[in-house]
């Protein structure tokens, strides 16, 4: 007993350095551990999926996961697309974007929310964020009894679930817009034309995920924090929402929220790519979508 007591602090010290600064050793340890976890999780998945492809390439449709993804990609077609890509990002490629959020991992820290606000020039005075993290009592995922304004940081005894624009394959907002000021691009991103929106706010009403927000005030962003790649003045008096960080993702980067998540609860990627994290997760994990019964076919999956 006495021996173990003496050994314990010696073991703990390198793990938790004073002030929790990221020492070189800690970083390398973390890197190794992350690589190990990734390898343990993904390598078998990749191997198994490749084995499946090799073993039964003819009847790939018969494989549960692949067939499901193919069906999703087939559903995920442009809606009301005016034929030219949005001006402030590279043209839509052949990708079909999707996201998987691990609600078991989410700790409710709202770092994705803050990163999103900074990345997308959301007015600091606007009173909304693209991402809404819902706090729930443990026991059931009950969308009718959630808390949006919980204390900063999150608590270990609660459940958290981030909700944002789902970039649905059957987007009710796009169907509801009277003037085709919003549409679905070929890569699946639902975009809004800020110069065309007539501010009828029918899309706010018709979205089942409360993902759209109206700029009731002129959005204000401190001058040194403005992201030049994202419009700002144009957003005054029109509707805006999550764009899957279109200016980043079409240029080879991932979304700001995925990058900011400290626990890796968010995975973003191309559904067309069978080796992307998203594709692998969809094939190997029991995923579910929010309000699946509405038939909106959201492109964000949850896994718990």
């Amino acid at each position: 007993m006495s021996d173990s007591k003496q050994i314990k602090p010696a073991e703990e010290k390198p793990l938790l350095p004073e002030g929790c600064t990221l020492s070189r050793r800690r970083f390398l340890e973390g890197l190794g551990a992350t690589a190990g976890i990734l390898a343990a999780g993904i390598v078998p998945a990749v191997l198994s999926s490749q084995a499946q492809l090799a073993g039964a390439s003819e009847s790939a449709k018969a494989e549960g996961g692949n067939a499901a993804i193919e069906g999703i990609i087939e559903e995920n077609q442009p809606v009301n697309y005016p034929g030219k890509p949005v001006s402030y990002a590279d043209p839509a490629g052949k990708q079909k974007w999707g996201m998987v959020i691990d609600v078991k991992a989410c700790i409710g820290c709202r770092r994705c929310v803050y990163a999103c606000v900074e990345e997308n020039n959301i007015g600091r005075n606007s009173g909304f964020t693209y991402i809404q993290v819902l706090e729930m009592e443990p026991g059931k995922v009950d969308i009718e009894h959630t808390n949006l304004d919980y204390e900063q940081g999150g608590r270990p005894d609660k459940w958290y679930m981030p909700v944002q624009c789902m970039h649905c394959a059957k987007p009710t907002c796009v169907y509801g817009c009277p003037v085709i000021a919003t549409w679905k691009e070929p890569d699946g991103i639902v975009v809004i034309d800020y110069d065309k929106c007539i501010a009828c706010r029918n899309c706010l009403v018709t979205c089942p995920y409360d993902a759209r927000h109206f700029n009731w005030v002129e959005p204000e962003v401190p001058e040194d924090e403005v992201n030049p790649k994202v419009p700002l003045e144009e957003k005054s008096g029109v509707v805006e929402k999550c764009t899957f960080c279109i200016h980043r993702t079409r240029n080879g980067q991932t979304t700001a929220c995925t990058e900011a998540c400290p626990v890796g609860a968010r995975k973003f990627g191309d559904l067309n790519d069978p080796e992307s994290e998203v594709s692998i997760l969809l094939k190997t994990r029991r995923v579910w979508r929010l309000k699946e019964e509405y038939g909106t076919e959201p492109m964000i999956w949850y896994v718990g």
Partner: peptide, 25 residues
């Protein structure tokens, strides 16, 4: 109610047939 009433012209130029607003308007 519209902040930019002139944009209402889009209702005539590019009406979206799946929106109930078009019909009632």
């Amino acid at each position: 109610d519209m902040e930019r009433p002139w944009r209402a012209v889009w209702m005539l130029l590019t009406p979206n047939p799946t929106s109930p607003f078009i019909y009632t308007g």
